[in-house]
């Protein structure tokens, strides 16, 4: 029996009057990788962004149902969204390092938490970069602009930046979709390493990636959760026809 870190219960999301997520109930086990798959527009990214309340930034969004993180509904009235996001980090589809140095990118999170001591920051920066398996590549140019790194390096830098805040859960929104195969495999290796300590939810439309990296897979279709199970079962013996059609490449 897995320890359930995040539990969505009857979650629906509307843009104005249009439902984008319909009555989703999904459990995310701790220190596992859960993949969300489905054709584009199916709501998988939208669902991901409900988990750290990133949808708050968009006007005109209404949410029903609840999302429990460690048993607390994050849509309760007196939730501290800022602290919630410290606990739940996010990696975006397009890598988005700040136009600052590598060092300042990583130190951004610790600094906003009030850490100013250089030795302490140095330590966190090195630790985070090592965890994101990019230390060896950037240790000589920590004070160069992060924008001078390659696309794959930038994405791993963003992962390191998230780790520096010490989250418990990491949400990844198609983190490798813009990367070449070598960078992609580095990210996938990294995900494998990270799940020792973090609960990871990854959105991908690359089914091989879902199969390679995840322990659990959830299939979304037009705002609904069609099926969720252990990854090997979803890919070998799906119970719904839609799932089978999708993973066998018949649509999407």
């Amino acid at each position: 029996m897995e320890n359930l870190k995040v539990r969505a219960k009857n979650l629906s999301l509307f843009y104005g009057d249009n439902p984008a997520l319909k009555n989703i109930s999904l459990d995310i086990p701790e220190k596992r990788v859960s993949a969300l798959i489905g054709p584009s527009g199916c709501g998988k990214s939208t669902f991901l962004r409900t988990l750290n309340r990133m949808n708050d930034l968009i006007d005109n969004v209404r949410i029903e149902g609840e999302v429990l993180v460690d048993g607390i509904n994050i849509y309760d009235r007196n939730i501290d969204v800022v602290n919630l996001r410290k606990k739940i980090g996010m990696i975006f589809q397009k890598s988005n390092p700040f136009a600052k140095s590598v060092y300042d990118n990583i130190a951004f999170g610790p600094r906003i938490n009030g850490i100013t001591k250089k030795s302490q920051l140095d330590e966190i920066v090195e630790y985070s970069l090592r965890q994101a398996a990019i230390w060896d590549e950037v240790k000589g140019r920590l004070h160069n602009s992060a924008l001078s790194l390659s696309g794959g390096q930038q994405q791993r830098l963003c992962i390191a930046r998230t780790l520096a805040v010490n989250p418990e859960i990491i949400l990844m929104d198609e983190p490798a979709s813009a990367l070449d195969p070598i960078s992609t495999s580095k990210i996938e290796e990294l995900i494998h390493e990270l799940k020792q300590k973090y609960t990871i939810v990854i959105v991908t439309h690359n089914m091989q990636q879902a199969a390679r990296t995840s322990d659990y897979t959830a299939f979304f279709y037009i705002g609904e959760l069609v099926e969720v199970n252990r990854t090997e079962i979803i890919f070998s013996n799906p119970s719904k026809k839609q799932t089978e059609d999708y993973i066998s490449g018949r649509f999407g």
Binding site: V69, N78, D80, N83, L84, K86, K87
Partner: peptide, 8 residues
Amino acid sequence: SQVSFAGE
């Protein structure tokens, strides 16, 4: 890692 988000 005990950052609590319960309670604004």
